[in-house]
């Protein structure tokens, strides 16, 4: 298997706070990969570094063999990396279907003239995009909410909508930032099924998650961050038995 995402020696500090220091990660294509660690370990910072929100102090990030560090966020998104956010960033006052249509933005073709004049080509494309958006909503289990404002949906539905919006860009890599936060046990089970279904469509998934039950049952590989450093990486069973991980989570043995 080849690595779809390779992170090499990535460091990022904010003033005196070292959020990431020398992190190496390699995510195989077609896998479900978890990043875990205590609060403040640098997990979300790592996502922001991958999507180009932060510039790196040092290190490189490569996606599908090409460097992506230093590129603007929208270019990285167009290369095929989509994400969701820890504190939901939906377009709240737009309808659910419009949210998904915006996700399709980079996949739609169209010149300025098409947009200005509403050419038949633009309209045909628009209809096709709308149908695909409906299909994505169905795929995540949101069938009848298309016209509702995103902010009026239930919390669980908003989480799903964010995933649908991310999938609409037809990414090869999907980054999920705490997708199960705030979900009840039933919704968590459905989420796990959804993530597997996404992987089965050929999308590699990296997720940040605190729910160990979910992580252990869902993911093939796990990396553990603590204080900005990667302290372990491996299969779920290896991680569970790793003394450094236990120490990071429970504190040093007395």
């Amino acid at each position: 298997m080849t690595a779809l995402l390779s992170i090499d020696g990535v460091s990022k500090s904010f003033g005196a706070v070292c959020a990431l220091s020398g992190v190496d990660l390699s995510v195989d294509a077609g896998s479900i990969f978890a990043i875990i660690g205590p609060n403040g370990a640098g997990k979300s910072t790592l996502f922001n570094a991958i999507t180009g929100i932060y510039t790196l102090d040092s290190g490189t990030i490569a996606f599908d063999g090409r460097r992506i560090d230093g590129l603007p966020t929208f270019v990285i998104a167009r290369r095929g990396i989509a994400r969701t956010f820890q504190n939901l960033r939906l377009f709240g006052f737009l309808s659910a279907i419009d949210n998904v249509l915006i996700g399709e933005h980079a996949r739609m073709r169209g010149t300025l003239v098409d947009s200005l004049l509403g050419t038949p080509r633009a309209r045909a494309q628009e209809r096709a995009a709308r149908e695909r958006a409906r299909a994505w909503l169905d795929f995540v289990g949101l069938n009848d909410v298309g016209e509702q404002f995103a902010r009026n949906l239930s919390y669980g539905a908003q989480r799903r909508l964010e995933i649908a919006r991310a999938l609409a860009s037809q990414p090869r890599l999907l980054l999920l930032d705490e997708p199960a936060a705030g979900l009840n046990p039933t919704e968590k089970r459905e989420l796990a099924d959804l993530v597997r279904a996404i992987r089965d469509r050929g999308v590699t998934v990296v997720l940040i998650e605190h729910d160990m039950g979910l992580v252990m049952s869902l993911c093939e590989r796990i990396a553990v961050l603590d204080h900005g450093e990667k302290i372990a990486q491996g299969a779920p069973a290896e991680i569970r038995a790793n003394p450094a991980v236990i120490e990071a989570y429970l504190g040093a043995p007395a």
Binding site: T51, T73, A77, F91, I102, G103, H105
Partner: peptide, 10 residues
């Protein structure tokens, strides 16, 4: 609505 999210949509 959200410029940062818009960038992430490409």
């Amino acid at each position: 609505e959200d410029e940062l999210a818009a960038k992430h949509m490409g």
